[in-house]
Amino acid sequence: MSDAQTSLGDPRALETHVQTTKIRFRPAQFWRWAAGPAWLLAALVTWKWPDADDFPATNQFAVFQMVIGLVLIALAATGRLKDRAPWAFVLGLGLGAWELIQAKLLLLPRPFFGTPQDLLDVFLTDWKRLGDSLFHSLLLLAGGYVPGSILGIIVGVALGRSHHVRYWVRPVMRVIGPLPPAALLPLAFVVIPSTRWAGEALMALAAGFPVAVLTWSGVSAVDPAYYDVARTMGAKNRFLVLRVALPAATPQIFVGLFMGLGASFAMLVVAEMLGVKSGLGFYMQWAQGWAAYPNMYAALFVMSLMCTTLMTVLFKVRDHLLKWQKDGLKW
């Protein structure tokens, strides 16, 4: 009797019992080892299940899925697939589902809804033109965003530091600034002989306005004591602007650069669709005109990649320059 009582009453005995018998489900382990096989399974479906119609590049797509699946398994085995494992798994299944629904069962109306292999085919056959379009878009963007941002910072600092500049420039900014730059496009194409320059000028405007306003706000918010500290040690205006006002306003300036980049993307696409005869926007317009929807999706994909990469670069630069801040937004 006493034996039974002690074995029931001892909590430690119970605990070890549970631990040894219960098989624990570990989600991290599951995602890690499920991601690769999910892609392989999808590859098998792509390869073996007959297409509902004559689609290009089906086998290439199966190879693509298989390679990704093998790479994921290799990454899992070497312990380098951790945080991204759930995403890799879901992406594999998602692509597989798309393949099944459209390429194998043809459940959605064509040609507006393409298949994964259609998209892959565009990259395989038209990559030269896509790359060329990307290059021209980047060129056009740089030609507008970079000068616009520099000009915006200069104007913003001048607004923050000089009463005269405020008096003359502020009303002009208030009239022109809030106007969507795209609204000026018809005018710009008439006034500026080159459509390319017109697009760049409007992108510069699109970027310059938010950068100028936020730089201005950052510079006016600088603690006057910062200037006093430098002045008492003999600093002149040049040092006060470049080494005190600008670094102090950097957090705000980057908000402006971020907003300006977004506005420039919008302006870039509009300019390329309406006048400039190159770039991803032009490619999309052209593809849509020929009802070449896979090409349009491919261009959209490349454009999204371009935009997110540029944003990431901007945030990396910001994180580096603002490493002195206690905390910062992570992109």
């Binding site: 500290v229 040690m233 102090a248 801040q325």
Partner: peptide, 20 residues
């Protein structure tokens, strides 16, 4: 005008946060 031979120190340290 201000001169480095006459340095003022304030109630707040007013260190520049972007400098170590």
């Amino acid at each position: 005008e201000p001169d480095p031979s006459r340095i003022i120190m304030f109630q707040d340290p007013t260190l520049y946060p972007w400098r170590t």
